[in-house]
């Protein structure tokens, strides 16, 4: 019996998605995707790359080559903290942060992120809160996120929440914008209408 673990690592061209690169490059900020020279500045400047399964440079290379599955399933895109260090340092003026955003949105559209992974949940909770009240309510949003992803953590986070409450840094009530919050919903609906029009 062999204990050596092996895996087939070859990639056949038909396994790749030839339209993936173009669909990302077509979004605002994606225009310079094809100009990458694989220098690795994005990876080394990234404060989170130490945790990533693929460095940002490899994500760019894989996106460009059509490795859609691997890219969307990577933890890299969810670890991006949007600090824009890569965007300002890239010698080819590639807006790496925008590309990471685009990949996150694509992963959510295609529902290929880890179940109970908090980031997409947090993003969606923000969305709901804003739609309702025009504002995001950190406390409530985060509470929902924890309940939906790791209910057991709720206990661990209770202390922090309590401290915030005591110092008046977390409101129990809901912060609402002045004026008519339905304008927000109408605005969002109109965006959908307009986007369909131009497609």
């Amino acid at each position: 019996m062999s204990s050596l673990q092996i895996q087939v690592r070859i990639k056949h061209q038909e396994e790749l998605d030839p339209d993936f690169a173009n669909s990302i490059a077509a979004l605002p900020g994606g225009e310079n995707l094809s100009r990458c020279i694989q220098c690795g500045t994005c990876s080394s400047t990234c404060p989170v790359s130490l945790y990533m399964d693929y460095t940002p440079r490899r994500i760019i290379a894989m996106t460009r080559a059509g490795f859609k599955q691997e890219v969307l399933a990577s933890n890299t895109i969810w670890l991006c903290a949007s600090c824009y260090e890569c965007t300002v340092d890239c010698p080819r003026e590639i807006k790496v942060t925008d590309i990471m955003y685009a990949l996150k949105r694509r992963a959510m559209e295609e529902k290929v992120y880890p179940k109970r992974f908090p980031t997409p949940v947090l993003a969606k909770e923000f969305f709901k809160s804003v739609l309702k009240t025009g504002r995001s309510n950190e406390g409530l949003t985060v509470t929902w996120m924890i309940l939906k992803t790791a209910p057991l953590n709720m206990l661990k986070q209770m202390g922090l929440g309590l401290k915030l409450l005591l110092r008046g840094r977390m409101a129990l009530g809901v912060e609402k914008m002045e004026g008519d919050p339905t304008q927000i919903r109408r605005l969002m609906e109109q965006v959908e209408v307009e986007e369909k029009k131009t497609h």
């Binding site: 979004l27 605002p28 949007s82 955003y101 685009a102 996150k104 949105r105 959510m108 980031t119 997409p120 947090l122 993003a123 969606k124 923000f126 969305f127 809160s129 804003v130 025009g134 504002r135 995001s136 914008m177 002045e178 927000i184 605005l187 969002m188 965006v191 986007e195």
Partner: peptide, 20 residues
């Protein structure tokens, strides 16, 4: 005033975040 769109929001729908 309303929420600016924030970073998390950008990962749901960018155009909507910009509109906000």
């Amino acid at each position: 005033w309303n929420c600016c769109g924030a970073t998390a929001y950008m990962s749901v729908d960018e155009t909507k975040a910009f509109a906000l």
